[in-house]
């Protein structure tokens, strides 16, 4: 009897809810994702390699990863500036701008896509003055880059904001009392303690940009080898019924996403050991 009761828990429903959770998870997430990986197994390593190294695929991956990296860098810098302004200063409309940061999260990507295109098109509000300066944004890689900056900004802001808010004011006072000027305090004391959060925000923004589809394709121009992102190439291959090609690109992108998840997890673990939870 005693062994039979050993596993009981105080609250009811564990077996039932866990069973339903695993079933639902398998049906919606695990089986479909497993299908994706199984599909690539139908390809020989040679074929797989050939697809990935074809000029168009390679360029699409280069464009996606390269521009995402650049956009995440901009987000890192601008995100830090925005967080600093929102957390440390008071100015009219601060709360409104704080809320505005979430718009790229909340706005459906297709809406963001058409809006950014309209804004930066040759006759658009911002496109026209830029065209005067000889800068063409819409339907060029610059457009892709700007769309990625748009969707990435909340990641850095929302990751760093709580950490900056919780930063113990005493460390700044300690630095000042030890004779550090403001410049030293900010760059040697405050920013270093934000590093895990900054890197996490950077990684999240980067991952989102790599996978982004809706907000990018309208402004991208979608010229093969020039302004064609990897997710779009997947869609094109699918519409051509070249499932294998689509799958191969998808697997590479998925693996990249897993690497980023892993990196973010490590970053957060690192942050936890660095700054003990109070």
């Amino acid at each position: 009897m005693s062994t039979a009761v050993a596993r009981r828990t105080s609250l009811p429903g564990f077996g039932l809810t866990m069973g339903l959770t695993l079933t639902w998870l398998s049906v919606i997430i695990l089986i479909p994702l497993a299908g994706l990986f199984l599909k690539t197994l139908e390809l020989s390593p040679g074929q797989f390699w050939e697809i990935l190294t074809s000029r168009r695929t390679l360029n699409a991956l280069k464009i996606s990863f390269g521009l995402s990296f650049a956009a995440a860098c901009v987000n890192l810098v601008m995100g830090t500036i925005i967080v600093w302004a929102l957390v440390r200063y008071r100015f009219p409309g601060r709360r409104l701008f704080d809320a505005i940061v979430d718009i790229p999260f909340a706005l459906p990507t297709a809406v963001a896509g058409v809006a950014l295109t309209q804004l930066f098109a040759q006759k658009g509000w911002l496109g026209a003055p830029l065209a005067e300066l000889g800068i063409k944004v819409a339907f060029t890689p610059i457009g892709i880059f700007l769309a990625m900056v748009f969707i990435g900004i909340p990641f850095v802001v929302r990751t760093v904001q709580p950490v900056l808010i919780d930063l113990d004011p005493e460390i700044e006072e300690a630095a000042a009392s030890l004779g550090a000027n403001r410049w030293h305090t900010v760059f040697r004391v405050i920013l270093p303690s934000l590093i895990p959060a900054l890197l996490t925000g950077f990684a999240l923004a980067f991952a989102r940009a790599v996978g982004e589809y809706g907000s990018v394709i309208f402004i991208a121009g979608n010229l093969p080898n020039v302004s064609e992102i990897a997710p779009l190439l997947i869609v094109i291959r699918l519409s051509e019924f070249r499932y294998a090609d689509a799958t191969a690109i998808a697997v590479v992108m998925l693996l990249a996403a897993f690497v980023i998840i892993f990196a973010v997890n490590r970053l957060q673990r690192w942050a936890q050991t660095r700054i003990p939870a109070h």
């Binding site: 994706l36 990507t109 996978g211 997710p231 997947i234 869609v235 499932y243 998840i261």
Partner: peptide, 18 residues
């Protein structure tokens, strides 16, 4: 959390493959 890190296009693709 997995779906958050999967590109939307891939989220559709997996069902096309099935």
């Amino acid at each position: 959390d997995l779906p958050f890190s999967v590109s939307p296009v891939i989220s559709g693709l997996v069902f096309v493959l099935l």
